[in-house]
Design a protein around this nucleic acid. Sequence first.
DNA 1: TAGTGCTGGTCTCTTTTTGAAACCACCATT
DNA 2: AATGGTGGTTTCAAAAAGAGACCAGCACTA
Lengths: 136, 136
Amino acid sequence: MDSKIFNLKAKLEVYKAMTNGGNFADCPVRDVIQGISGKWSSLLVMALAEKPYRFGELRRLVPDISQRMLTQTLYELQRDGYVHREVFPTKPPSVEYSLTDLGRSMFAPLQMLVQWAELNHDAVREARAAFDAAQP
Amino acid sequence: MDSKIFNLKAKLEVYKAMTNGGNFADCPVRDVIQGISGKWSSLLVMALAEKPYRFGELRRLVPDISQRMLTQTLYELQRDGYVHREVFPTKPPSVEYSLTDLGRSMFAPLQMLVQWAELNHDAVREARAAFDAAQP
DNA sequence: TAGTGCTGGTCTCTTTTTGAAACCACCATT
DNA sequence: AATGGTGGTTTCAAAAAGAGACCAGCACTA
């Protein structure tokens, strides 16, 4: 067997999970990761991890999200089971979004990544500045 | 230490980091997170965490990425300091991509998220199916 | 009673991002 | 002389995202 091809097939445990052992057409881990790797998903999960919020509150909390993307991202998070949506029959009706148990359990590893980002954003910004300065 | 209180404190710290103390729009942590939350970024970091790969190897490894997005994502990962790019003067010249120390340190928390996804993809798919079934 | 505002959205239009595919120069092999 | 592998760039179409108008329903106000 060609060693190059063999090396391509030899993958780490985590990478196997990510690639479903070479079957890219149906990879659950990639499917899940891509569901929370959108531009606004993780941010909204962070916000809702603190406490439930209503639609308008989230809109004011994240001022640079469009109303359209807020609706859509919350819909997707709800569909994937991370977020619970509850309508209260007030006048006018108010809608509260909160994390489900699944959402809270996903928040734990997400938190790791955010803490890493908090510790390393200086390094990233320095790398970015150095890279841009070295460009012709 | 009471684990509930500990978790609450951790949550609030992370929330503050993500929100820049209430200022969501201009937040360093968000800047870092959004740099790795692209569609292909995490997947390529996972691959390079195993071992360095050349451009063509990555292209074959991730068959559903376009050459254009592979170039662009690797460029961004390099710019943010996660990936090192080295050109070898072979004929034809070959280009090797590898994780930097920063990239490896980021891989650790990312791995947590992937492992969570591996453990919970059934729950997510069930939530999705239940949600779709409940739609009119 | 007509106007105004707040609720949580949808609809339409424009801009940005992504995908698909062709193209490139170089060199080795066939 | 044609073919294939190297690591890309370029071009054009499709998809996604952003900006802003619009909507129904009710409360409050003038």
